[in-house]
Amino acid sequence: MITFEDVVKVYPGGSTAVDHLSMELPTGKMTVLVGPSGCGKTTSLRMINRMISPSAGRILIDGEDVTAKDEALLRRGIGYVIQHAGLFPHRTVLDNVATVPVLLGETRRAARAKALALLERVGLAEEFAKRYPAQLSGGQQQRVGVARALAADPPIMLMDEPFSAVDPVVRLQLHDEFLRLQQDLGKTIVMVTHDIDEALKLGDRVAVLREGGHLAQFGTPRDLVTNPADDFVSGFVGKDRGLRGLSFDDASALPVRPVEGLELDAAGKPRGGTFTKADSLRTVIDLVISSPTGVAVRVGPDGAPDGLVSHHDLADYLASRRP
């Protein structure tokens, strides 16, 4: 657990970046710090690994003050990913990834073997190992950046706008891969972004900060969407909060009608999209709206259709859910 205890950061010149921030970031979860520029999110992140020192207050990792440890040793135990990756241009991809294990005293050989396995893990083929960062695309560089941060298997990872510098298509792909990776690894992750969609998609917890370094709300993505603390948060979360809130509920309780009169396409699949009980209500709404037959088809675990949902069924169900 990472604990912020009444942390203040005032920069020389008097501007307050972080104003009495207190929060607890749970172990094994991903907490996203989100807010407009100047809200102190990056400053807060960088105080965790002491790249910036607080003006007042303390930051604790599992109860231990971060200032108790040697600065460099503290950082070696915390993965660090930044925007544009910040790879060492003079080192091969493999040696970039091997950096921290070598700093920690592993032999270059052992560190490289580990690095190779990690590259595969983040979806880079072995042929990339011998290349230099300049020969990689932005998305590939960012994967190397993530692999480099993971190399020493740190329990904590800090990520400062890790996906901001890549194009939207690659970004979505990196998101999904990263979520899968995190499901396996269960690291304590703190990520900074200015993109609320990214925050709601990736975060187990989201801390919304506002200008001047005030914490506006700290909670799960669902809390933020369904129960925003104030106008700032609801404005920041966006206009389509109602629709967005439905992405947190699955379709298990959605009543369906028996399968009859099912239209099949040329490939023998039901016309209109299919969904399972695990898909979100938002997905189902989208399917029903875009279905040429006006119904979406629910399929069971075996992939066989076991129910139909129409516009009316959806509307009735949503109306019945109103508190």
């Binding site: 040793l73 950082r75 925007q83 060492f88």
Partner: peptide, 22 residues
């Protein structure tokens, strides 16, 4: 590139290592 230097520090290199290795 200050971002690279920032990454080097953030990964736990001592100032001397940042200078000589990066």
């Amino acid at each position: 590139d200050h971002r690279v230097v920032d990454a080097a520090r953030g990964m736990g290199m001592h100032p001397w290592e940042v200078l000589t290795k990066v």
